[in-house]
Amino acid sequence: MKIHFRLNGSDIAIETDPCRRVVDILREDLGLTGTKESCGSGECGACTILVDGESRLSCLMVAGQISGRKITTIEGLVSQGEMHPVQKAFVDHGAVQCGFCTPGMVLAAVDLLRRNPHPGRQEIRRGLSGNICRCTGYQKIVDAVEAASRDTGDKE
């Protein structure tokens, strides 16, 4: 089945089994290995992508479901070599250790800030509660999102 969708700003069409998982299509067919898989069952958030701007789990979606949708992966957040403010904040504030949860965490944070541009620390924690990190203890991730929300605020 041919599936048309928008991926990181470009319209594409792929020929694939529509029941394959989106995470597999991204990683195996499209080479976008920034999207990680860690539990395969929706319990960790490592495979988070944005679908029409909303954070969703690519391990619990099949290809047919993204037909006509706008998909953003971690690779799509970098625009013309410039990192997204959330990505920059993650680097500057030490929110990255092993980095395997990072792409999903960043995308969850981007969606959180879209819905709530100035969240408090507890709101940030709730907004990221679908993403497990085993290295950082979350604190520097919260710091980073807080800083990113300040930076975005300055621009407004």
Partner: peptide, 12 residues
């Protein structure tokens, strides 16, 4: 900031 953070946060 860690040297390895940029590539990790960019998914590369």
């Amino acid at each position: 900031p860690r040297f390895d953070a940029k590539a990790k946060v960019s998914g590369t």
